[in-house]
Every structure is written in C-alpha cells, then in structure tokens.
Design a binder for these strands. Sequence first.
RNA 1: CGGGGUGUAGUGAAUCGGUAUCACGUUACGUUCGGGACGUAAAGACACUGGGUUCAAUUCCCAGCACCCCGACCA
Length: 403
Amino acid sequence: MRQSQLFPKTKKEAPKDAESINHKLLVRAGFMDQLMAGSWTLLPMGFKVVQKINQIIREEINAVGGQEMLMPLLHPKTIWNETGRWDKADEIMYKLKDSRDKEYALSFTHEEIVMDLLRKTISSYKDLPVSIYHFSTKFRNELRAKSGILRGREFMMKDLYSAHANEVDLMEYYEKVKVAYSKIFTRLGFNFKIAKASGGVFTDKFTHEFQVLSDVGEDTIYWKEGDEEAVNEEVMEGDKAEYKSAKSIEVGNIFPLGTFYSERMRAYFTDRDGGKKPIWFGSYGIGPTRVMGTWVEVSHDDKGIIWSKQIAPYDVHLVELKSDSGEGKAEKIYDKLKQMGFDVLWDDRDVSAGEKFGDIDLIGIPVRLVVSDKTGDKIEHKERTSDKSELLSFEEVARRLQE
RNA sequence: CGGGGUGUAGUGAAUCGGUAUCACGUUACGUUCGGGACGUAAAGACACUGGGUUCAAUUCCCAGCACCCCGACCA
C-alpha cells in the first residue's frame, strides 16, 4: 500500500477528550474513528488488525471443530420471551419497534437464536455434538461507554455455541475450548490469566474469563502463586490477603450453560435409549475489537503503538528519504517484497523525514526499512521495539521477514 | 442515573460584555529532505442548540444536547 493513498491520514494531536491510551493512539494513527460514545468505525488499518485477530481465532476454533456461519442481528421479541431474557436482560438490550409496532431487539448475544436453530435441526443424539460460531456485531446498552474501544455499545464479537447430548460431553468440549482460547491469547502475545467468574445474565453457573493483566482493566482478579486458575473478585472466597491480585481486561469468556436454554425453548433430541432429552449447551465469546484496544493498552510507548508481527496491519513499513543519487530504490524494494507475498506499507509521500519517522513510530508496524543516500545498495532495517538499526542486503531483509 | 469536567475554523488552543486571535492542518508557488523544515500568498468560524439579562453576549444567567472522567452495571 502506498501511504499517499492510505485512508485516512494520521493526526498530530489526539481528540481533546481522549484520555485512554487506546483511544488516543488508535485515533491518531488512523485505525478507528468515533461516531458517538461507544460506537466506532474501524478504518482500513484498524479493520486489517481486527481481521488478523479474527483469523487467529478462526484457525483455533476451526481446530476444535467449530463451523463458521452468520446469524442475523435483528431479533423478534418473541424468541427472547421464551427464555425470559426480554425482561431479565432489559437493561442491556436495545429494543425497538417497527412502523406496525412489532417489537425487536438488536442482538446482544445469540443463545436464543442458536437454540431456535438447534430445535429445528437436531432430532437425534446422532446429530450431536454441534459447534457453530460467527463473527458479528453485538449491541449492548452499556450504562456508560468508556475507555476508547474497550467498552463500546456496539462492538465485534466472535461467539461460538456448542450443543451436546450430555453433560460430560459438554464439559469435555468446554475444556477443549478453554485450551483453544489459551492458544489464541498466547498466539496473540498476551500475558493473561484464566479466572473463574459468575455468569451475569447468561447463567447461574460458574464460567471462566480470559483476563489480560492491565491497570486500565475494570476487573480485579486474584490468584495464588503456582495456581493455574485465578478467580474474579466477584466470586472470590477466602482471605484476599493470601492472594496476589491485579487489574485486568476481560478479552474472552466461556460459559457452560447446561440445559437452561434448551428446556425453555424445547430443544430436545431423542437419545440412544429412546427418551427425549434437552440439549446440553455452551457459549464462548471473544471480542476482537476489545482485543485490539487491549493490545494497544499493553504495547505502546510515548511515540505510538507497538504491534506484534501477528496482528500488525502491515509486515513492513518502507520509506525512502530524498537522495541526490536519484529516487526509485524504494519502489523496486516495494515491488519485490510484494511479489514475495509481504504486506508492505510504503511511505511514498512528499513530506519531511521527521514526519515520516514520526508516523512510522505512531503506526507501529514491527519492521521499518529505510533507503537513502546513506544506505548505498543496502537497506536499513530497524525493529519497532529496538533503538538500533542495521544495514542489510535485500536478501537478508527478506530472510528476516520470513523468520 | 448520581457526581465532576469540557463544548470557539478540519484539529488543538487564546479571548471572558463592544461580532474572534494563534498554531498545526489545507490550497498555490518556490526552497528543502536522517526525527513532525522554511519563505511568500490564500481559503477556512452564525463561537453546540434554544431561551433570558443587556444599548450590545462567544463572554453573564437558565434549560437542553453532545463528548470525556468517577460511581452503579457489564464482552
């Protein structure tokens, strides 16, 4: 991508109201734009980051048998009445009426919708288990949107739903998803903990949250040295003094929902013994837009964002500084790297060196390549995380990028 | 929804009773080019909305709206 064509331009100053890091940096660097409180446009680079996050999630969910699909966001009131959540989740749901006074909800989750699908499609234990998911927008009427993209009223979510013939199978799958989630957040590069928590409007049972340690987090989790699992403050038993604690951002959660939904929505199947039994059900969510914001909160410096290779909007940021020996070096490198399959952002703008370097640090792509008079036939290679640069040949640069 | 803060060119700020100034950005031309460079010229604002006080309101008062922060609630 030629930076001269990249939409939009970076900003020198953050919006005056912005306080949180992800708000300031993601807006300044041109990754997102605010429409209103809690509602954000993902600009081209922000969308690329979210797609990369989604792809990592997709790979790991597919690896545990998840099948991707897409469900509607406009839901009839009747389906929410079946489980009582039209009233129980009243505070969080956006509700609306059409011109004939029919009532709808904007999706804040999809348990009821999946359950409707399952009762129409599952009739035998042979049809189970089922694991289906989608990436889509969630609407939640948050009392207060805040912290940039971390708590919006409209955000992207990957939600996975699984259906099983019995509790053992559900819990086995629940553990598999827990492992898959751990792989996802490990691949994403987070320092996270799995915390036991309550289920909110979803379930009365215990659940698990994936918590990234960060001072801007709204949750507080507690754990004992050596323990695999932490606990959320809300469900903690025992003496706090015996635990280590930290603020954290919840980036994912898993819910073993049991038969609550299937019983209320009459989603039964015929089991091996001929009897009708309710489907065992679980749901599992990750918020990719929150993941992006969380990444910025935990990975930045005073100059800008520091993306990891896994989710950076581009593999390389290439820049040529004006030279006496004539230009065109960068364009050749750009073409060659593209041919090799690298995603390159080439700053081809006619602006000062300082402005180019400023934007490079702000945008935060992991590798910076500079060519100029000083570099001769070599290329200056610098990583965003380092202050040092090296002069390398094109081949050496390409090899580094492939590592 | 309670408490606090802020609303002035695209962005960030100044003016704080006499109809608005600066910086950045933008446009044109020229000079520059290793950390947001310089010169010249130019465009760009019903001062959030509505009401009130006043000879006169961006400025004071009231109401509303919007955004941010703290709290209650939550991926």
